[in-house]
Design a protein around this nucleic acid. Structure first.
Length: 588
RNA sequence: GGCCCAGUAGUUCAGUCGGUUUAGAACGCUAGCCUGUCACGCUAGAGGUCGAGGGUUCGAGUCCCUUCUGGGUCGCCA
């Protein structure tokens, strides 16, 4: 028998024809003289009928069918009688009257239900991933992922990009995440590193004149996992020559526009909103704002500069700030206990406390108003646009902590008030990131993006005088409060590149040792260039409306970076270690 | 590395104040019956190291300690 159709790909045209379908026995309904089998493949299900009156031998064979047996069925597709049509399934108008059955494979009882939206513990799902992946929602996720990568290949090809592979075994470079290392057999004591991204190679491809490069690139970072972080993940990685920020942004908006249209039927308006880093922080307290709801941060530092409430005035005089959000309606909605929980929430992100004022019809409820003047309070209420029923939450500290805490608080309150409209797609660019940030522990400047990011032309002069103020030609693309991609225009001038290395405290010698090949390449004629990388897993996760990238990766790893299905990582033979010149130390 | 949550049948869960002979339910599974089901139905049945180890107690699924596993989160993630 040769398959003629996928189960759910039959059409009205096929009615009356003899067809052959193959798949898994999804459900069996044995009514005695008639047996119904829902046969499932990746397209969906089709009901197959075995009737004892038509063929008693065939019917007897069908009695052996159990869940998840793999079957081949030859039969005639017929219209169901009107009263037996099932509108719940795509093929519900038809059924296959079996003429021949082959049991291609028997199956043990599966440890999890092959059904949509099961409630099963993720450990079970991951151990039996081959079964989990049979479930229709997982099949949809994986197919969605395929569609998105297909669109990426088509789109970037049409835009003149070349897909070029870069090495998986490469050289460890300083800065950034912890590397995965691969020992060299040929070079005792030396190691390859798996790429955290193809960054250096794609820049070198620009030096080589390929002009526009892209790749669906696997990347590796040996850091702790989260629901949106895996030790190996995939980027849609690209780089372009002779461009500036706007060019990179435009070509990528084109990609997203097309992907959302073709995959989800969502028409995106371009250009997307752009926020500078400064504005994003001021208004939302984060560089990846979710602007599907309001609750914006308000700066009150000028009002409380000389406040009788020392917590406020001290924060300002020490160079920090006092900012607040107005949780509309929460004064009435939240119990004292819930407000206390918010205070604890704020503390867990580093705030020393959280002051609040609850505005009520007949006055204010607050522990801090007694320290403040009436004028001060009135100005705060006015600026916060507060009315009875509202709850103003204040954080006073360094800007860093104020933004961190209020940004988190804003999301927490929005979630509690159910302010987030899941049907909205909120895409925006954040631009003009700081080039550098100061690392208190290491007592030096570090690159916020990476050390090849170009400063903005007008800020180059500040490199020597006030490095913290220098803005970068860097941009992130943010969807619904999740960073789904980012990139920058790179430094293509070797002198400027050397300067960058020196500012971040990377000695010339060390830079030569680690990045010498790049610096060498830059000597021979480097086009201005820049690029971007999307986190494919996160993009697919959001488009599939999932909460974890594990649901859009066929074989993900769990929190301790092991694979429950294969058992990786595992110990190896001493012989293998010897070849690699490796001895394992006793665990600490 | 820190903190929080969860581990009881194949799966999802219930299990009261530590005490009622043999730890229950649903789904799944097995067998029988059943000719229009699609959450098929009916009848019967099998299925348990209560994650593991230790402790308290006359008595532990239940209380205590340790540990393992999974999830979330902080740190970490240029």
């Amino acid at each position: 028998m040769k398959r003629t159709h996928r189960c759910a790909e039959v059409t009205a045209e096929d009615v009356g024809k003899e067809i052959v379908v193959m798949g898994w026995a999804h459900k069996r309904r044995d009514l005695g003289g008639v047996i119904f089998i829902d046969l499932r493949d990746r397209s969906g299900v089709l009901q197959v009928v075995f009737n004892i009156e038509n063929d008693s031998a065939l019917h007897a064979k069908a009695e052996q069918i159990r869940s998840e047996y793999v079957l081949a069925v030859r039969g005639v597709l017929v219209n169901r009688s009107e009263d037996t049509v099932n509108p719940a399934i795509a093929t519900g108008k038809w059924e296959l009257v079996a003429k021949e059955l082959r049991i291609l494979s028997k199956a043990a009882t599966p440890p999890l239900l092959i059904e949509e939206d099961i409630d099963t513990n993720e450990a079970v799902r991951l151990k039996y991933r081959f079964l989990d992946l049979r479930r229709p929602d997982m099949q949809r996720n994986i197919m969605l992922r395929h569609k998105i990568t297909k669109i990426a290949r088509d789109y970037f090809d049409e835009q003149g990009f070349l897909e070029i592979e870069t090495p998986i075994l490469m050289k460890s470079t300083p800065e950034g995440a912890r590397d995965y290392l691969v020992p060299s057999r040929v070079h005792p004591g030396k190691f390859y590193a798996l790429p955290q991204s193809p960054q250096l190679f794609k820049q070198i491809l620009m030096v080589s004149g390929f002009d526009r490069y892209f790749q669906i690139a696997r990347c590796f970072r040996d850091e702790d996992l989260r629901s949106d972080r895996q030790p190996e993940f995939t980027q849609i990685d690209l780089e372009m020559s002779f461009v500036d920020v706007d060019d990179v942004i435009a070509v990528n908006e084109g990609f997203l526009k097309r992907a959302f249209d073709e995959v989800l039927g969502i028409k995106l308006e371009t250009p997307f909103t752009r926020l500078t880093y400064r504005e994003a922080m001021d208004r939302f307290g984060t560089d990846k704002p979710d602007t599907r709801f309001g609750l914006e941060l308000v700066n009150l530092s000028d009002i409380v500069r000389d406040s009788g409430f020392k917590v406020f005035s001290d924060a300002v005089s020490k160079g920090g700030s006092v900012r607040a959000v107005n949780a509309k309606g929460c004064g009435y909605k939240f119990s004292r206990r819930e407000i206390d929980a918010l205070v604890e929430f704020a503390k867990s992100y580093g705030a020393k406390g959280m002051a609040w004022i609850s505005i009520e019809e007949d006055g204010l409820k607050s522990a801090i108003t007694k320290f403040m003047s009436e004028d001060e309070i009135n100005r705060i209420i006015k600026r916060m646009d507060a009315e009875p029923g509202d709850l103003i939450c204040f954080i006073a500290d360094t800007d860093e902590i104020v933004f961190e805490v209020l940004g988190r608080l804003r999301l927490e309150i929005a979630e509690k008030l159910d302010l987030i409209d899941d049907s909205k797609v909120n895409l925006l660019w954040v631009t003009e990131f700081p080039l550098l940030e100061y690392d208190d522990e290491e007592k030096r400047w570090v690159a916020k993006h990476h050390p090849f990011t170009s400063p903005m032309d007008e800020d180059i002069g500040l490199l020597d005088t006030d490095p913290g103020k220098v803005r970068a030609k860097a941009y992130d693309i943010v969807m619904n409060g999740v960073e789904i991609g980012g990139g920058s225009i790179r430094i293509h001038d070797q002198e400027l590149q050397k300067k960058m290395f020196s500012i971040i405290g990377l000695p010339e010698e060390e830079a030569q040792k680690r990045f010498g090949f790049l610096l060498e390449a830059f000597k021979y004629g480097t086009p201005p260039h820049g690029g971007l990388a999307f986190g494919l897993d996160r993009l697919v996760m959001l488009m599939a409306k999932r909460n974890s990238i594990r649901d859009v990766i066929a074989f993900p790893k769990v929190q301790n970076a092991s694979c429950l299905m294969t058992g990786a990582p595992d110990s190896v033979e001493i012989k293998q270690l010897r070849e690699l010149h490796i001895r394992v130390l006793e665990a600490d």
